[in-house]
Write a protein that binds this DNA or RNA. Sequence first.
RNA 1: GCCGGGAUGGCGAAACGGGUAGACGCGGAGGACUUAAAAUCCUCUGGGAGUGAUCCCUUGCCGGUUCGAAUCCGGCUCCCGGCACCA
Length: 819
Amino acid sequence: MTLAHIRSPADEPASYDPVAIERKWQARWEANRSNSPDLVAAPRPFYQLMMFPYPSAEGLHIGNVFAFTGNDIYGRLQRLRGHTVFEPIGFDAFGIHSENYALKVGIHPSELIPRNIENFRRQLRRVGLMVDWSREVDTTDPRYYKWTQWIFLQLLERGLAYKKKAAVNWCPFDKTVLANEQVIDGACERCGTKVEQRLLEQWFFRISDYAGRLLDNLGWIDWSESTKTAQRNWIGRSEGARITFPVVAPGGTEVPVSVFTTRPDTIFGATYLVLAPEHPAVEQIATADRAPDVRAYRERAAKQDVVTRKVTEKEKTGVFTGAWAHNPATGEPIPVWVADYVLMEYGTGAIMAVPGHDARDFEFATKFQLPIRRVVAGPGEGGGTPVDSAAEGDGTIVNSAQFDGMSVSDAQREITSWLVSAGKAAPVVNYRLHDWCISRQRYWGPPIPVIYCDECGIQQVPLADLPVLLPQLDDFRPDDSGVSPLARAADWYRVPCPECGKMARRETDVSDTFLDSAWYFLRYPSTEFDDRPFDADRTKRWLPVDSYIGGNEHAVLHLLYTRFITMVLHDMGHLDFEEPFRKFRAHGMIIRDGAKMSKSRGNVVNPDEYIERWGADAFRSYLMFLGPFEEGGDFRDQSISGVRRFLDRLWMSVQEMTGGGDPDPGVMSKLHQTIRKVGDDTERLSYNTAIAAMMEYMNGLRANERTPHRAEVEPLVQLVAPFAPHIAEELWEQMGHDRAGGIFHAGWPVYDPALVVEDTVEIVVQVNGKLRGRIDGSRDMTAERARELALSDDSIARFVTGTPRKVIYVPGRLLNIVV
RNA sequence: GCCGGGAUGGCGAAACGGGUAGACGCGGAGGACUUAAAAUCCUCUGGGAGUGAUCCCUUGCCGGUUCGAAUCCGGCUCCCGGCACCA
């Protein structure tokens, strides 16, 4: 169904006109600087952070509006509860995304991005967010990225930034470096050419040094469990042992090769060794007759792109080195192979293969006819039971000399300490987390602020010379040199060495966008300071962030990098906290027609159309009503009329309400229940049920065309305020409240516990657990009384034959008679 | 393969320490108002049987615990998301 089929309510003189009201209140908030709190004097600061958007050319996405509205409601609730709420926003405008789009349309990003940002601002303002626009952050602003560069230098100074060679994806046709996401089935997403691997010198951050702490803190931070689990998996802690195998190299020399294993208990079953193709010992140990094959295999592996290299279900390949190692447990000689199923980046880049008890080793051993030995016997199995598939389960140790008969867990401990005391092994903890590569061979990013001097080596750009401005390059296309387009700007990169003054060369790579976004929340409260990234007093008052809400697609990268940078700055004494966000909640995703919204599917929703037709208040409320905020939901444009009707009825209630006489006691009781429920639900982000509760109250308020009383309506307008702020302000003003303050200074209604409880309640009567009737009674009546009442009702009594065996009574709820 | 999250009417969903399954909304049917339509308001709306009060069935499937299970336990099936040759 298209929009044209849905009609909005007809215009009547006194009817609700969202367009006019929203324009009026947005202008007034801006004129009064209502959303710019005094950051210095705030008595009860509350920092409500939303993940800043990447300003795409397509404009604001429905998912952005959903996320920001959910943030805004929470921030507005805190404001109504008396906090000084700071709700900033900014733009994550550097990065390959913007750059690729600029390349496609042939407009320079320095022109395109400000245009997109302007469009985003326009769209965002219409949503009615409580955003402090005076503190906007733009990562492409030199006043911002000066400090991104400063952070790089801080890490460099502390030895947490270093250079090493690493593989990148390279498209030989487009002659450009590709991100992993741009490689589809081993081919370039643009031209389909087979992607290769290239080794480039790149900058890394030692995030792996922080793996243990990043993992441990997950134990206490108040974050969505799903996000914490994702981080735990990503960090990937495993406990095991490093075991050294002596390898006999050609000429008889012994070369020690260490492996990492989580199963030292299976060492008696280790029947061969495998080294990664890049392992430095390979060259040394390969025998003369095997060397050509080994070299050919390594070259083939080196050419493969980074993505397919790691694809699973790939046929195992490998090559024998000709060398033999000694199993340190049995002393027997075992062959040494090279295979690309072993990765240089993990563990030691070498494994002991236990084909009897590891699926990958089993597959490899079967293919190359290597010996397979059982060392763990499951139920009903013995040492002689043949192994027909890798047995990774629990069992009893066999074929392992003095350790036979032990359980796997006992053997794990005993064999490790036996090897350790013999000097052949050490217990180690390994993490899957790799160091963070921050180099990008691209144009649209902050230049990495170092200078290479032939005399003095790597030099930091002095603080006084920051920012290193990104030069305006008309031709910013990546080229086949394997370095950034900035490497073509000789007049930019040729600079004197800050140490000796001789001609030197700037680093021409730029840094990863995730570095821009790893610290932006520190900048917001301090945007007016040009001589420091974040002011100490401001930071003390406002940080860590009180509430952060964002998409779980950032569960590992952004949210992990941010924690890492915060820890580093803490350790250097710049911050007095080491976790950036007190509370983080992941919101769900909005889909449409059961699928992710995308241009190719043609199911993208443009928020502008909906805001024009229904009003921002209705649009906001609908997005929050369509499903649980933390789960997301399916966008259907039919259903928006329901919340719009609710707002119309709210409007009418204020126009019609009377001030005379007393409010209805039943309605007032329901009101206080509603105040409690809306407060509780909003606090735990259960926005859909909060709105449902207000609708339910409205139904009672206007039942049988009754005229509502002012005392019944006024608190409802307050409850609606976080969700639909414009109409709430307007009605609040119409009700004659102080113009200067507005509804967001009026506080949050407080419920009266005495009014929440109803005296007479309906009690459900069951016979043998089946519903047979209902009785009305007081909340605290006795079981005997309830039973009497129930049995006096014939439609219940006829199911009760004879004397009840048992009676279960839940006061105020249920009576169950068992016969 | 591993780790999360799910599965409830025609549809989006609710039930927050086991206690009325389906709140709230959409859609649908009927009615009031209107020359008429829209808007608005009222009634009904999980399925089945019955004239009827009423009865039976129903939360992906199978089983269990319990006076009582959407909820707890065991075993499956399917869907969505993330990670993935991590030793």
